[in-house]
């Protein structure tokens, strides 16, 4: 039987993009990214426990251009999920629900995540971490 084309209820595509949607979607997306990252942390710790050779594989990967790109994106995902997580906890406490403050603190999460990422990587650079 051919599939019947039926109207669907309106979804994301009918709405104008706004910060409220973006912060919510990004929180989930970064959460999934961080879940995958958590498995990498376990792998890295196992390598550190296994010996110098396994650990040099980890540092070699982390120091490559690909590794650094992943680490940079990972830092941003953590910074965003961390900041927006605080926002969620405050919302759970009933704070910041007026439209104006909801939009304003949404932007704090987004812009703040880039600021935090920049701070962390400036610090890494100052420590001489990127050899």
């Amino acid at each position: 039987m051919p599939p019947t084309v039926r109207p669907l209820s309106p979804h994301l595509q009918v709405y104008r993009w706004q910060i409220q949607m973006a912060t919510s979607i990004l929180h989930r997306a970064t959460g999934v990214i961080l879940f995958i990252g958590s498995l990498l942390i376990a792998a890295a710790l196992l390598a550190l426990a296994s010996g110098a050779e396994a650990w040099s594989c980890v540092t070699g990967l982390a120091g490559s251009w690909f590794g650094l790109t992943v680490l940079f994106g990972w830092t941003w995902a953590l910074a965003y999920h961390w900041l927006n997580g605080i926002r969620h906890l405050l919302q759970d406490a009933g704070w910041g629900f007026s439209i104006a403050s909801f939009v304003a603190n949404g932007w704090i999460s987004v812009i703040g995540s880039f600021v935090l990422t920049g701070l962390v990587w400036t610090w890494v650079y100052c420590c001489g971490g990127i050899a």
Partner: peptide, 12 residues
Amino acid sequence: VVLIVSLAGADY
């Protein structure tokens, strides 16, 4: 994050 950054570039 503080622990990791402080260990950036450190040896085994």
